[in-house]
């Protein structure tokens, strides 16, 4: 049994009213413990709704979401589910509660009724894990976007959840902040074995995941390793989805007659591939 199970989930906002619109049409998804999954899709495809379904902030209109075997739709499972699945939102300013970094990180464990000495230990550890320990006594509004988002992540780590769902955590950050946050996420997944569900529309972030799930119009379009998914440039483009820039370049070269053996995922691979290709050409010419 997978850690996160989404079974035939349908979801509509305002389900009771006449103008209900369904945003998810029977989604099936399984995520194993320790996985790093990127959920891709363009705006309005239902990926943010998925994020809130994972920890029971929203409940499916039909179907089931199971977290470690617990049904999120049952009232008594609400807290146990949220103890296992933490949620990080897009806007770093709106999700910090307290006026001091370390007190904000302590907010989650305080809610869980953890003894004070243990909270202190968890807070210090969480802040060190996101490399924000030196800033523990700062006010959040004096930090940069990337730093704030890392504090928000530390707030979830301190609760010792098994899984962190991040809903476009880098959308409001500059490239530097984006790099910091992605580095932190990678590290948590590798070193602490925390399950990561990263919702994003940046292709170069999705490439870093172990598995990519592409959503379109309330359904899962395709999924697989980044390499498998981004090979299908044509297919993704038909659904007006982007591909990483390197993949795009090689795809276009292919269209104009320069055939490379496969689609690269990042700049380095692309450069290496082009270099090999050019060397081959030079060899053929001389």
């Amino acid at each position: 049994m997978a850690f996160l199970e989404v079974k035939q989930v349908r979801f509509s906002y305002d389900a009771q009213t006449a103008d209900a619109r369904e945003v998810l049409h029977g989604v099936d998804l399984e995520i194993e413990e320790g996985e790093f999954v990127a959920l891709l899709g363009h705006n309005g495809c239902g990926k943010s709704t998925m994020a809130k379904l994972f920890n029971g902030m929203l409940l499916p209109t039909a179907g089931k979401v199971l977290v470690g075997g617990l049904d999120t739709s049952l009232e008594e499972n609400q807290l146990p589910v949220r103890k296992q699945v933490g949620l990080v939102l897009q806007n770093p300013d709106n999700q910090l509660v307290a006026g001091i970094v370390e007190e904000d990180v302590a907010f989650g464990p305080e809610n869980l009724g953890v003894p004070p000495v243990e909270i202190r230990r968890r807070v210090d550890e969480a802040l060190k894990a996101v490399e924000m320990y030196e800033y523990r006594e700062h006010a959040p509004h004096k930090l940069s976007g990337g730093q704030k988002q890392r504090v928000a992540i530390a707030g979830i780590i301190a609760m010792e959840t098994k899984c962190i769902v991040l809903d476009e955590p880098t959308a409001m950050l500059d490239p530097k902040g984006r790099g910091e946050v992605m580095g932190t996420i990678q590290k948590l997944n590798r070193e602490k074995g925390i399950t990561i569900v990263l919702i994003t529309h940046y292709m170069d972030e999705a490439v870093q995941a172990g598995r990519v799930v592409v959503m379109d119009e309330g359904d899962i379009l395709t999924s697989g390793t980044p390499r498998q998914v981004f090979q299908q440039v044509e297919f993704l483009k038909r659904h007006s989805l982007d591909v990483p820039q390197a993949a795009e370049l090689v795809y276009r070269l292919g269209a104009s007659g320069v055939k490379l053996p496969e689609i690269p995922l990042n700049e380095e691979e692309c450069v290496a591939m082009l270099r090999r290709y050019l060397a081959g050409r030079a060899g053929a010419l001389s």
Binding site: M57, L79, R82, N94, V114, M159
Partner: peptide, 19 residues
């Protein structure tokens, strides 16, 4: 903020500890 607080298991002052 309400979403973030609820996600972090906030459920009022009952059973809450302080760092």
């Amino acid at each position: 903020l309400a979403t973030a607080m609820e996600s972090r298991c906030y459920h009022g002052g009952e059973g809450r500890t302080k760092m």
